[in-house]
Design a protein around this nucleic acid. Structure first.
Length: 821
RNA sequence: GCAGGAGUCGCCUAGCCUGGUCAAUGGCGCCAGCCUUAGGAGCUGGUUCCUUAGUGGAUACGCAGGUUCAAAUCCUGCCUCCUGCACCA
């Protein structure tokens, strides 16, 4: 409508696991899965066919195409494709070969949450329990134990300087195992973990926990000899099952030592003299504002912890100490060369140093229990040689930031988030071993995963039209073909092949050049940290020197809610597009959704609002039909309406430019209100046709179907959707706008007075300004009709004194005003 | 926990950047009147409380403070909600 060519393409993303998941579940006879399909209107008989992934893709593709058309989306279907089409696979191969050459695809080793039964990573959505839990690295400090190693695992390696003893579980059986040529004593559960974390582990024997107690080990950092003591709080399923004790800074350790002092169990069971315990002196090694005493002791008393069985309070106080010391703590003289450093700064460095010296190692644990869907408990595995996108690359980040700087965001609030994400983003695994998608050309056992093959596909739309039209076979889409189309690189004469002529090649290049980059992409806010941002990264990587190919604007919306709740298949609180259209019409659905919110808030859909819109659209239809073409002549009122419409046109145009659909709909209401007021005022002049045309045009992007109908009823040729968008190019008469406001105000006042004084027959209006006087005179009939007066007298206030009848009134009302009798 | 966004008169929303024109925009709902054979249709009016011939006042924009002649709007603290936190679409 604004005279631009618009490309609105539509494709189908089939990459990943979900489709195969459906197939799998159907093959297993999963009833819930069947139910979902039945709810979509698929017959029992047809469900068989859904065991073929290609059929699933075709089925939904057709369904979605139909939905898009029913909604009135003007999609260019010549360009459609799916991400599992072999021609698209060639495009992704081209993209990834390039990124690898550029050094943006790298191989790396990384910890993942792993199900040993499924033999694959366990994503958040694959878990029975433990959503949100993630890998965390425990540092293992290798305490010397008679040539063997007692590996104590800790999240606070800096506290190694304050170790006074080691904790083990007396009732447990530990394993003696050969770990990377050393002999370690560890909990049994640690073996599988260490094996999956790049350690060579061989079980050699067993040793009882209580047999360790009372023995001494050497702290590899301080060379101090410390005693091994029993503690019940040690969790054998966490890390190595060996814990170092730092009573100055760890509430658990502090209280466990206190517990030991209280009984003579130690002496009775292990023959350890109580004096051994009493001589243990906590070593404070971190100074933190707010901690005067020993931090562990202080926290235990604040949280009134009385024994190591007081788990809840202990966890709270541990967290508190950890947080405070991590953020504000400074290492003191007890820490040798690290003295004076902030805990938050030195933690990593210190662990690295210890590892280098061979006195530390690490074991990855989960932040909480994770159980895979297959009911197996997951642990952390270090996955080797996985393929990553190197989003950490500073130059790549720099270009991404530059792109964001040039972009527009609707709403603008989203920009900050993008900037934040780019800074925060680390290397991202870009391939998996299962699912649908494109195989990495150089390492075909890996498949490009779904968030990594959906980042520059928009460029593919510019040529998919020709691929579809000429039925180009995938093997003709060689690397140099894409090089030429997307970069203009090479000589088309030489690149042309049997499947793609030189002429066609040039056409594809031209088409790409004409359309790309994308002017606007719209999606939901949860895609900001991944999809949207990745797309920026990939664009700047593929076209580093051509900012004009980069994304220009993103529109970000909230997630559709239904009656205040998130729509979900399991809750069943959703409606299919077909159902909605049949029940409420596409127009009513469209405008209700556009009207529900804008920006990043979650829009809420309610049936009530939709029905209200449906009725309103009906009445709009009648209103236009009854009034269009009925106007003749021009009065001040026409000037008023035209002036009002100019303001509305400006407003709605600006709102739509900024993708504020709800605000735009509000303007439609205002237009309608003004047209209705104009009609109420009585005289139908030439502003009527003009305003109705403007209104229908402005409404048409929201409700195209009924607007085309109305347009035809109006006797217009062609489509309203192809007509020119209204311009605010008519005069705005500010004076008349003001005068009409006075009339409205007068009506309000009259309403008020009549309400209080009751209905009257005569209205006397004394007006001071000559302009108002003239204007009110024109409104005389209207006032009479509107309020049912038998007589309306409008007089200039100054002249009223010549009116004998008005004398008495003037005496009462000396000033301009209203008088009823 | 970290990051981003938000809390407005029954509900949804505008306003906040650039303080006053804000009892605060528009819609929905509700109430009344009109129209109509009828109406979940349409039209008109009302919709914080008190007061009033078209007025004046009180209380209001998550909570608590502060700045200012003046705050929904600026500042500080707190509470609540939404979104994301990765190998998953």
């Amino acid at each position: 409508m604004q005279g631009f060519n618009v490309l609105f393409p539509f494709g189908f993303h089939a990459t990943g696991e979900p489709i195969l998941g459906v197939v799998e579940r159907l093959k297993k006879g999963d009833e819930a899965q069947k139910k979902v399909l039945l709810r979509e209107g698929i017959t029992e008989k047809d469900i068989e066919k859904f065991k073929d992934p290609k059929y699933i893709v075709r089925f939904w593709q057709k369904r979605i195409e139909n939905d898009a058309n029913s909604l009135g989306l003007s999609v260019d279907w010549r360009r459609k494709f799916t991400t599992i089409d072999p021609t698209f696979n060639r495009f992704i191969e081209w993209q990834y070969n390039y990124l690898k050459r550029k050094g943006y695809v790298i191989q790396a080793t990384h910890p993942v949450v792993w199900c040993p039964h499924c033999n694959s990573p366990t994503g958040d959505h694959d878990r029975l329990t433990g959503e949100g839990e993630s890998p965390i690295e425990y540092i293992i400090i290798k305490f010397n134990f008679d040539g063997k190693i007692l590996p104590a695992a800790t999240l606070r390696p800096e506290t190694v300087f304050g170790v006074t003893n080691i904790w083990v579980r007396p009732d447990a059986e530990y394993v003696i195992a050969e770990v990377d040529k050393e002999e370690w004593i560890i909990a049994e559960s640690a073996i599988a973990k260490l094996k999956d974390q790049l350690h060579h582990v061989k079980e050699k024997g067993k040793i009882k926990g209580k047999d360790l107690i009372g023995k001494y080990v050497e702290n590899p950092v301080t060379k101090n000899k410390v005693i091994i003591l029993p503690a019940s709080f040690v969790d054998l399923n966490n890390a190595t099952g060996i814990v170092m004790s730092v009573p100055a800074h760890a509430p658990y350790d502090w209280i466990a030592l206190e517990d030991l002092k209280k009984t003579d169990a130690l002496h009775k069971e292990y023959g350890i003299n109580i004096k051994e315990i009493e001589k243990i002196k906590p070593i404070k090694l971190i100074d933190t504002p707010g901690f005067v005493d020993l931090p562990a002791k202080q926290m235990c008393s604040i949280f009134s912890v009385s024994s190591q069985l007081d788990k809840d309070q202990l966890d709270k106080s541990t967290n508190e100490v950890y947080k405070k010391e991590f953020h504000q703590g400074i290492l003191n003289a007890n820490t040798g060369k690290y003295a004076g450093m902030q805990v938050s700064k030195c933690k990593k460095e210190l662990a690295q140093d210890f590892k280098k010296q061979g006195i530390a190692s690490s074991i990855w644990e989960l932040t909480g229990k994770v159980v895979c869907r297959c009911t197996t408990e997951a642990h952390v595995k270090i996955l080797e040689n996985q393929w990553f996108l190197k989003f950490s690359d500073p130059e790549w980040k720099r270009l991404a930031r530059k792109c964001v700087d040039q972009m527009k965001f609707y709403p603008e609030e989203a920009r900050k988030q993008f900037e934040e994400i780019i800074d925060w983003l680390e290397d991202k695994a870009c391939a998996r071993k299962s699912g649908l998608g494109t195989r990495l050309p150089w390492d075909p056992e890996w498949i490009v995963e779904t968030l990594s093959d959906s980042v520059i596909y928009m460029a593919f739309y510019t040529i998919s039209k020709y691929i579809n039209e000429y039925n180009i076979e995938p093997h003709y889409l060689k690397e140099e073909v894409f090089d030429y189309i997307f970069w203009g690189k090479g000589d088309p004469k030489k690149i042309a092949n049997k499947g793609i002529s030189e002429e066609l090649l040039k056409k594809m290049r031209e088409e790409f050049d004409y359309w790309y980059g994308q002017d606007m992409r719209a999606s939901a806010k949860e895609l900001i940290p991944n999809h949207f941002t990745f797309s920026i990264f990939h664009h700047v990587a593929v076209w580093p020197n051509e900012p004009k190919r980069w994304p220009k604007a993103y529109t970000i919306n909230g997630m559709q809610q239904m009656n205040g709740q998130k729509m979900s298949k399991s809750k069943g609180n959703y409606i299919t597009i077909q159902e909605a259209i049949e029940k409420y019409s596409a127009d009513a659905m469209r405008i209700t959704l556009m009207d529900s919110t804008e920006g990043m808030d979650d829009p809420d859909w309610t049936e009530k609002a939709t029905i209200a819109w449906k009725n309103k659209l009906d009445s709009i239809y009648r209103l236009v039909k009854e009034n269009y073409g009925k106007g003749k002549g021009e009065s001040n009122l026409d000037k008023w309406l035209v002036s009002r419409m100019q303001e509305h046109i400006k407003a709605i145009t600006e709102h739509l430019e900024n993708v504020r659909t709800k605000s735009a709909v509000t303007v439609l209401h205002l237009m309608l209100n003004d047209i209705q007021w104009y009609l109420r005022r009585g005289k139908k002049g030439k502003a009527l046709d003009y305003s109705l045309e403007v209104f229908v045009k402005c409404l048409s992007p929201f409700t195209p179907f009924i607007c085309e109908e109305i347009w035809q009823e109006m006797g217009k040729k062609g489509f309203v959707s192809k007509s020119d968008w209204p311009k605010a190019d008519k005069e705005i008469n500010k004076e008349i706008l003001q005068l009409e406001e006075f009339v409205k105000k007068l009506c309000d006042d009259l309403n008020e007075v009549i309400k209080l004084a009751g209905k009257k027959d005569k209205l006397y209006l004394y007006v001071a300004s000559p302009k108002e006087f003239d204007y009110y005179k024109e409104a005389k009939e209207f006032l009479q009709k509107e309020f049912g007066f038998k007589q309306v007298n409008i007089e200039k206030a100054a002249e009223a004194k010549h009116d004998p009848e008005g004398k008495a009134k003037r005496a009462k009302f000396g000033k301009p005003g209203i008088y009823l009798e």
